[in-house]
Nucleic acid binder design. Structure first.
Lengths: 208, 208
DNA sequence: GTCTATACGGCGATAGAC
DNA sequence: GTCTATCGCCGTATAGAC
């Protein structure tokens, strides 16, 4: 898709090794451990070559971020076909891996200004995709709660697990279980746990 | 309260100038702009003196964080005496300044590990103080909603504005107005806007 | 105690050699 | 395309003046 240099549409094996190594370092040691020297060592190339493909570290971070966003959008396309889309969305929002990397990029954006709009852009694409799914569900279920707009529920189902995880990192826990219980009681009401009557399985089905 | 050196209970004017300057720089340019050299220039002292009081940068960040937490707790003591405590809490949670600094410290904690538990500790103290207020309000209002636990509402009233502000920084906006509307509709129901009948004024009153 | 001056190794970024 | 040399920051450590 995107290249940092005009080498055609593909990426060299060195480029993919650099991107992969960078993501690994971010996940294991945080973005602050990403240096030209550390990435080069991980990818088995020289620091100068990393800098050749990504002239500033921001270019490297942004490339990793974009690749991750693309992966999430692919995953969400599968979620929209799940039997219980609300619970699938809730499971997605509660997944640890995605939240860790998102927080890492949010923290990074604080002092790498060019990263911020890339996060926002990806966030909008993700949320619009989710909203489309949720609005369809709303119609299928017949607007279970006259009060809660799909967009509000979507935001809450995203924000609550994310903020809980963020706070837990620091050791703040008050109100977490109560907030989760609130959402799950809502889910139990509008999308009761499957007992096996409606459609095929708890895996992906095709009826949207 | 806390000193970094054994100079008794007070702080020298240079120490307060350093703390004040550091907070200014964080607010204006972000934590990444906080260096011994930049803080010294802002406070009108030499870099060596900053390092004398705060041997590592982490000590400096933590001192600023603790001072800020103390200020918030003082403010919350006043909130608990407000006529409309729920709305006072909501206003507090929506205040820009506090959120900016909190996010700055959260980002900072990502690569200054000693900062994280200080955030968590302060967060717990703040939330427990808020929970005490909210539980009292719950009894006074007669548990308006059998479903919503005070701790859940407290978490939501804190997490929603904070996550909204965070996302807005990046340019993600979907669902924000809907989520805010949801909370405010709830507030309208359990704590209707004062029309002037109950007590003195919309300023601080004494009846708890 | 309070404060200054200086040195060291590591970093991102740049220019330019091959 | 690939890689090296170099520069100006940084945090930190230390030695010592008042």
């Amino acid at each position: 898709m995107r290249t940092e240099r005009g080498v055609g549409s593909g990426r060299s094996s060195n480029q993919t090794a650099i991107l992969h190594g960078t993501e690994e370092i971010m996940r294991e040691q945080g973005y602050a451990a990403v240096t030209y020297r550390s990435v080069a060592a991980r990818a088995g190339v020289t620091p100068g070559l990393v800098q050749y493909y990504f002239p500033a570290l921001e270019n490297l971070f942004i490339a990793v971020l974009r690749a991750g966003t693309d992966r999430i959008l692919e995953r969400l396309a599968r979620v929209s076909e799940a039997d219980q889309p609300l619970r699938a969305l809730w499971d997605y929002a509660n997944s640890r891996d995605g939240t860790v990397m998102l927080m890492e990029f949010m923290a990074l954006a604080n002092h790498r200004k060019a990263v911020a709009p890339v996060i926002g852009e990806g966030g909008e694409r993700i949320r619009q995709a989710q909203l489309k799914t949720l609005t369809a569900v709303w119609e299928r279920y017949g607007v279970p709660e006259g009060d809660v707009a799909p967009a509000a529920l979507l935001f809450l189902m995203s924000a609550i697990p994310r903020m809980i995880h963020l706070e837990e990192t620091f050791g703040t826990v008050t109100g977490h279980v109560e907030a989760v219980a609130l959402v799950e009681r809502f889910l139990d009401r509008v999308e009761p746990r499957m007992t096996g009557e409606t459609s095929q399985d708890k895996t992906i089905s095709a009826h949207g």
